[in-house]
Amino acid sequence: MIIAERKPIKEIEKMIMPYKKVLIVGCNTCVTICMAGGEKEVDILASSLNLLFKSKHKEIEFIKRVVERQCEKEFVEELKEDIASVEAVLSLGCGVGVQKIVEVFPHIPVYPGLNTKSIGAPEEEGVWKEKCVACGDCILDKTGGICPIARCSKKLLNGPCGGSQDGKCEIDKNLDCAWQLIYDRLKLLGKLDQLEEIIPVRDWSKANDGGPREVIREDVRLKNGK
């Protein structure tokens, strides 16, 4: 899932300051799970902004909506009437959601209310952790199912740096050393010999360095492809 976190309210305040009527749009998918942009968070943000502007003797009217998936056109289109009645949109979706609203409604300003942090998972109540950076060329088969690109702070591919101590990363004592985890897992599987293989340099063109990526399945396309 996508993990996100609300932006500081002061930052949001600056974005919507010029408007009188704003639509706040949450998303029922990932950002609901990570408690950043679901129905509750839309309510909380609207209420916080009401209090903030009240104290500044300014009034902005908020319309609150939550769509099923902000990253899909069909769901975003449901906002048509609401959008016609406001001057701006504040999205509590991930970065994809913001851009999808922009694509469907190009004429209206859309602002991000969240910082999109990572692709990850809920670790425990109230904790979400990054697990994948969508590098486009998975090597989890070589690293015991633990990704060093996402989880080693230096993205090292051939073992831990000299700062790995007691299973923790040198940059933060609360952060697990990915290579310690990899070592432990391969040991558990009796496959420590896998560590001897030198993982070659990466093809970052398969990651975002190659420009925005797309996946195409011709068999399911309705429009004609190339």
């Binding site: 509750k40 309510d43 909380i44 209420s47 916080s48 209090l51 009240k54």
Partner: peptide, 11 residues
């Protein structure tokens, strides 16, 4: 109790 109850009370 929830965040929104508290904020609403102030509102």
């Amino acid at each position: 109790i929830s965040i929104i109850y508290l904020l609403k009370a102030f509102e």
